[in-house]
Write a protein that binds this DNA or RNA. Structure first.
Lengths: 148, 148
DNA sequence: GTGAATCATTCGAGCCGTGAACGATATGAG
DNA sequence: CTCATATCGTTCACGGCTCGAATGATTCAC
């Protein structure tokens, strides 16, 4: 959606602007997070772990809206970084329970910093009223469309 | 960027909301445009052709921010649909000049309809003031970051 | 006229995510 | 208790998407 350019009729559209700027924002965030050795999905997984308490990989896959097999490799990499621990659930030894380590929490907070830095860069030179209105509009839209 | 979920610090962020909703908007648009047998990039190419006047594939690649080789296959497909014409530029026979056919213009306007329909779906139940503020905020942001 | 630059095109490669297997474990019916 | 069935995590092969290098045609600079 960084796609559609030109053509007044498309440019005037909400989906067009949202798509374009969304891709831009995602790229900026990805660039910053890459310096931590992470992809956005890694940050997503860390955040999901921080939000709910310890969860199985299936639950996490559902939360993030990705295939369970993807969680496996994300968790592998985060585990290699010492950011998460895998524990067999003693009540159901099929389940792998993932938990954040202190290092994981540190990484997550650096991801949050990255997001805030990207925010500042994106909103630079935007007058505060407009920025607040934008944030509020996005929040309202998200409330209607993003699960939870 | 439909990634990062949970974790208050990230959720509060502009990039997070923009990224999430941007991906959502892009998906909705893609779904509608697919019924026309097109991908979003095809719509992007049509729109770019409509915006500037006849352009070489190199120029189009630059405008869309993609590799020239991608333009080739997009143009191939659009040509097969009868939406664009390829003409050798008589002043420089290396260049292929792409132009919209009437069918191309028809398709483009249906893409615009798809975008508007996706808009309506997205903004349903959002009060008009908020929606206007959102559109204005996005416009201002785009003006600062999207070329041209 | 000759060599360097530019265009469109083809083709191979890389990244990313999915879905179909598979083994281990758990659950329920008889 | 036992066997059939379902669920979890894991591996692996594949498809979609995009890029970059190589190629051939054409133009440009000198």
């Amino acid at each position: 959606m960084s796609d559609v350019k030109g053509s007044a009729a498309l440019r005037a559209t909400l989906v067009f602007n949202l798509g374009t700027l969304g891709a831009l924002a995602a790229d900026r965030f990805a660039a910053r997070v890459e310096e931590l050795g992470l992809k956005p999905k890694h940050a997503g997984l860390l955040a999901a772990l921080d939000a709910g308490s310890a969860a199985s990989q299936q639950e996490l896959a559902a939360r993030l809206g990705v295939a369970p097999s993807l969680i496996v490799s994300l968790a592998d990499q985060l585990q290699a970084l010492g950011a998460v621990e895998r524990l067999r659930d003693p009540d159901d030894r099929r389940r792998q329970v993932l938990t954040l380590t202190p290092e994981g929490r540190r990484l997550l907070s650096r991801c949050a910093e990255a997001a805030e830095a990207a925010d500042a860069e994106l909103a630079a030179g935007l007058d505060p009223d407009r920025r607040a209105a934008l944030a509020e509009g996005l929040r309202a839209l998200g409330a209607r469309h993003v699960p939870h």
